[in-house]
Design a binder for these strands. Sequence first.
DNA 1: CCGTCCACCTGAGAGC
DNA 2: TGCTCTCAGGTGGACG
Length: 299
Amino acid sequence: MPELPEVEVVRAGLARWVVGRRIDSVDVVEPRSLRRHRPGPEHFTATLAGREITDAVRRGKYLWLLLTSGNDPAPLAMLAHLGMSGQLLVKPPEAPAERHLRVRVTFDDRDLQLRFVDQRIFGSLQVTELVTTADGGPGGLGRTGLPLLPPEVAHIARDPLDPAFDDSDFADRVRARHTGIKRALLDQSLISGIGNIYADEALWRAALHYARPTETLTRTAIARLTDAVRQVFGEALDAGGTSFDALYVNVNGESGYFDRSLDVYGRAGEPCKRCGTPIVREKFMNRSSHFCPVCQRKR
DNA sequence: CCGTCCACCTGAGAGC
DNA sequence: TGCTCTCAGGTGGACG
């Protein structure tokens, strides 16, 4: 269940291990992992062959590898979303095939491979053009000097670790909403990178109830919440950053969430670390919300 | 604009 | 043993 910190660790690993390499061939083991690539698997493999990877870029939970464009009019990228269970692994070619190996990328220098492994196939890979957008994207500066993004990512807001994330504008937009705060946190067009687990963690830290109406939040409270999100992300990144030095890129897909200890998620019935009250789990938005009924009151 | 429901998926675990 | 059911949740689209 990768959220922003997990995806960022993958991005950093790809920047280290595959940027600068030239793709030799691509083996599509499971075509459903390419369902978002409309022209089909053959087009996917044919387009990638011979391209060099020039950068690894991320926005929220999306990441993409910039590709040399050759004679193409527009710059290209291989866009990835890990969904619920996706992993991008860098492995030596002789490593045995993973049980849920979906796509294998082989490079010119054959010392390692990039493998897309995804149990549930909610994740996907696709080749996409990069386009100029109004707000621009992280890392995507093209030759024209204009910021570029995959169109599939154009509706995704900047994430709170992006230097260009505008805290004040975010607070205004939250207050203009008429919805619950957790719903807003999970809305990737408002703030990106947050999933169900870190949403619960950040709300606990900021002592806010998940259903607290957004229009009743003060700018100060929203600032506290945004800081809480950054804290939770930062700690997860610190925990996951240790894998930078290893010869693999990993989203610890099974146990997930690195080894950082979670304060509320998955702790229903256990004492709140602030006040000792048993943590409550409730269904909300068809998923679980964990919170302290004393620290996090609705009003 | 808002909220709900659904489809897309696999595998673990519970209950019978 | 083996069947059915529930649950896990990111994304995007349909619909009221």
